[in-house]
Design a protein around this nucleic acid. Structure first.
Length: 371
DNA sequence: GTTGCGGACCTAAGCTGTGT
DNA sequence: ACACAGCTTAGGTCCGCAAC
C-alpha cells in the first residue's frame, strides 16, 4: 500500500510533496494520474521499515484472534508484550515505548489520495484516513469509563475491506526477518501476492511500477537497474523463494518488465497452508458433531464464508443466485473458489465472458474441482 | 552503456550522563 | 539502583557521479 517503504529518507519528501503513484490509461487513451500524500504528525514521525516489523506482528496477532474467535474483532486487543514478541524483539523499556509510539504513529499518519486495493486490483480514493481510526493505550479510559487493561485499536474501514486478502496469505515472519535487504523485504509480499493470484505461474511486473511502489529511483540503463535490484533478487534466490528472474524491454521500449519465477519455498508455504487449513476444517467438523444442536450459526454461515459470499456477489453481480453461491461455498474449498473468482475477474477484464459472470464463475469452479 | 567509488543516510548495539 | 535520552561506533544500503 506504499505506507511503509524500504528507505525512510525519501518518505520525508512525500510529507511535503505529492508523490505520483500510478498512471491509469483509460480505454479512450486519456490518462489519469493518481497521487498520494502521507501526512505525518511531527510529534510521532513517519512509518519506516521498523514499523513494518510491528505491522507484520500486528497482522499475525489479528489472524490468530480471528481464527480463534471466528469473528473480526472490534476493537482489536494489542498487548504490548505479545506484539514485541511477535516482532521478534526482546521486551525492554525501549521496545515498550516503541510499540506505544507505533500505535500513535499509525493513528496520526493520514493517507490522502489513492491507495491500492489489492482485492479489486484498482485504486481507492482516501481523504486523510489513518490505518488506526481510533486507539486506546493501556491505562487510558475507555468509553464505558473503565480503564483499558491493554491496548486497543479500531481499524479504518478501508483496511477491514481489504483484510481477507491478507488473511489468506499470512506472511512467514521468520523469513521476513531473515531478509537483510530492504528491497527484498518489500519484494517478498509483492511476489507472494503475484504468484498466489497467478496460481504459481511466473509473475511479470513493470520496473517503473515497482519503483513507484517502493519509492526507488527509476534508472534507464539496464546495468544500473541490475545494480539496484539484483542484490535483493539474489538474496531471495539464496533463500529459495525466487527461482529465476528475467528482464526484458516493454513493447514501447520505455520501460522494463521483470518476470519472476517462484522458488521451492513459495510452493512449500502454499502446501503448508493447505494442510493447516485442512486440519482446521477437520477440527471444526469434530467440534460440530460433538455439540450439534447448539450450532445455529451454520445456517447463516461463519464470518469468512459470509465474506466470501459478499465477494462472489461483488464480482458476479447477481443477488438472485445468492442461495446457489452459498451452496458452492459449503461444497468447495475456499482456495478453489478464490481461484475461480480470480479467473472470472480476469476473464471479465479481458472481455472473454459471453453469457454472464455468474455462469462463468460456476462453470470455472466446477471445471477446477473436477478436471 | 557500464563500472566502481564514495557520500548520505540508515539501523543496531553499546556506552555515558542525568534525574528520580 | 533504575529508567531513559542522547551520543558514538560499526556495518550496511542506495544513489549520484566521474571515468571508461
Amino acid at each position: 500500500m506504499g505506507y511503509f517503504t524500504p528507505s525512510s529518507t525519501r518518505i520525508r519528501e512525500i510529507l511535503t510533496k505529492e508523490k505520483r503513484i500510478a498512471e491509469i490509461t483509460h480505454s479512450d487513451g486519456s490518462i489519469t494520474i493518481l497521487k498520494v500524500r502521507i501526512l505525518a504528525s511531527g510529534e510521532y514521525g513517519l512509518p519506516t521499515t521498523r514499523d513494518l516489523d510491528y505491522y507484520r506482528a500486528f497482522l499475525k496477532l489479528l489472524e490468530e484472534t480471528i481464527s480463534r474467535d471466528g469473528v473480526f474483532p472490534e476493537p482489536i486487543r494489542l498487548p504490548t508484550k505479545t506484539l514485541i514478541h511477535y516482532a521478534g524483539k526482546q521486551v525492554s523499556q525501549k521496545e515498550v515505548r516503541e510499540v506505544k509510539n507505533w500505535i500513535r504513529r499509525l493513528h496520526h499518519t493520514g493517507i490522502v489520495g489513492h491507495v491500492y486495493n489489492a482485492q479489486r486490483g484498482a485504486y481507492d480514493e482516501l481523504s486523510g484516513e489513518p490505518l488506526f481510526a481510533k486507539y486506546r493505550l493501556r491505562g487510558q479510559r475507555l468509553e464505558n469509563n473503565r480503564m483499558a487493561e491493554t491496548n486497543y485499536v479500531w481499524l479504518a474501514s478501508w483496511f477491514i475491506k481489504n483484510y481477507w486478502h491478507h488473511y489468506l496469505r499470512p506472511i512467514d515472519f521468520a523469513f521476513h526477518k531473515r531478509l537483510r535487504k530492504p528491497i527484498a523485504k518489500s519484494l517478498y509480499p509483492l511476489l507472494e501476492t503475484g504468484w498466489y493470484a497467478s496460481n504459481g505461474q511466473p509473475y511479470a511486473k513493470s520496473y517503473r511500477d515497482l519503483c513507484q511502489e517502493f519509492l526507488l529511483t527509476v534508472h534507464r540503463a539496464p546495468s544500473l537497474i541490475k545494480q539496484q535490484l539484483d542484490p535483493a533478487h539474489e538474496e531471495l534466490y539464496r533463500e529459495h523463494f525466487l527461482a529465476q528472474w528475467v528482464y526484458r524491454k516493454s513493447t514501447d521500449k520505455s520501460d522494463y518488465i521483470i518476470t519472476y519465477w517462484p522458488g521451492e519455498k513459495f510452493f512449500q508455504d502454499q502446501q503448508a497452508r493447505l494442510e493447516r487449513r485442512e486440519r482446521a476444517a477437520q477440527l471444526a467438523k469434530k467440534a460440530e458433531t460433538a455439540s450439534r444442536p447448539a450450532l445455529a450459526a451454520t445456517t447463516e454461515g461463519t464470518l469468512p464464508s459470509r465474506y466470501l459470499l459478499a465477494e462472489i456477489l461483488e464480482v458476479c453481480g447477481d443477488r438472485q443466485n445468492q442461495a446457489a453461491y452459498f451452496r458452492l461455498i459449503q461444497h468447495y474449498p475456499e482456495d478453489l473458489i478464490r481461484m475461480a473468482l480470480f479467473e472470472t475477474q480476469q476473464a471479465d477484464r479481458e472481455g472473454r465472458i459471453k453469457k454472464s459472470k455468474g455462469a462463468y464463475f460456476t462453470d470455472t469452479l466446477k471445471r477446477l474441482a473436477h478436471p
